[in-house]
């Protein structure tokens, strides 16, 4: 029985393949042989440190877009977790989704869409019973040393969030049509994320490593030169 931080998970569900390699997330930590990894992705992603874990890929974002029209994944991942573990039945899942979304003040039709979404996600995977999976202690306990001035929580590496690659958040990808673009620079002005720069002729360039896909640029473009396309796979 684990509560809070799960050190040795039987099931790990990852909403975006990019998180698999994030140093601050490390979702694969503590997974033991025989455990199950679910990745929300349309394609297989090579898992570097795959011992003998079972990996399942499904594109639940696609399902969310189909049912709800938005990449809101809480119901999808909850549904998958219920089914994979085999611990929570369909009715309990539906009741919980309904109750939680009602508490958030969502309208009945939107709640219904989410329920349909949860149902489809639920049926998209099979239960994998992992009773009796064996845990072994994985970590040594160490003593923290006094680190002098390095032990002060000051940050000296400025402007380093670009390392985080928030491009993985993106569901819709802005694409600039150079034939329509007049190099007015408006998309550059209004990008909240500093993701658009201008080349020498003043044409915009999008930094897809970081672009979260908010599409403010597409809405603001006076020439309607920016189109949104469903992200295929984030790499």
């Amino acid at each position: 029985m684990e509560r809070g931080h799960i050190f040795n998970p039987n099931y790990v569900l990852v909403t975006s393949p990019s998180l698999l390699f994030d140093p601050t997330v490390k979702p694969l930590d503590g997974m033991v042989e025989g455990s199950v990894l679910f990745v929300n992705s349309s394609k297989d992603v090579p898992i570097v440190d795959s011992k003998k874990i079972r990996v399942i890929y499904r594109d639940v974002t696609d399902l969310a877009l189909k049912h709800v029209g938005k990449d809101i994944l809480s119901a999808t991942m909850g549904a998958v977790a219920c089914k994979l573990s085999g611990l929570i039945g369909l009715q309990s899942l539906v009741d919980s989704v309904s109750e939680e979304l009602e508490e958030l003040g969502l309208e009945p039709e939107l709640i219904e869409k989410n329920i349909q979404l949860a149902k489809e996600c639920y049926s998209s995977v099979e239960s994998i019973s992992l009773c009796g999976l064996e845990y072994r202690p994985l970590h040594n306990v160490v003593e923290v040393r006094y680190m002098g001035e390095r032990g002060i929580p000051d940050l000296l590496s400025m402007g380093n969030t670009a390392l985080r690659k928030t491009g993985s958040w993106r569901v819709l990808k802005p694409l600039i049509d150079r034939n329509l673009c007049t190099a007015c620079g408006i998309c550059y002005i209004y990008c909240p994320e500093s993701c658009i720069s201008l080349d020498e002729q003043g044409y915009p360039l999008i930094n897809y490593d970081s672009c979260k896909g908010c599409l403010v640029c597409a809405v603001e473009c006076p020439m309607k030169a920016i189109k949104a396309e469903r992200e295929s796979v984030w790499s």
Partner: peptide
Amino acid sequence: EFLVSGTSLCAGC
């Protein structure tokens, strides 16, 4: 730019 990309704030903030 004085603010680089990659913050954890919501898209479209």
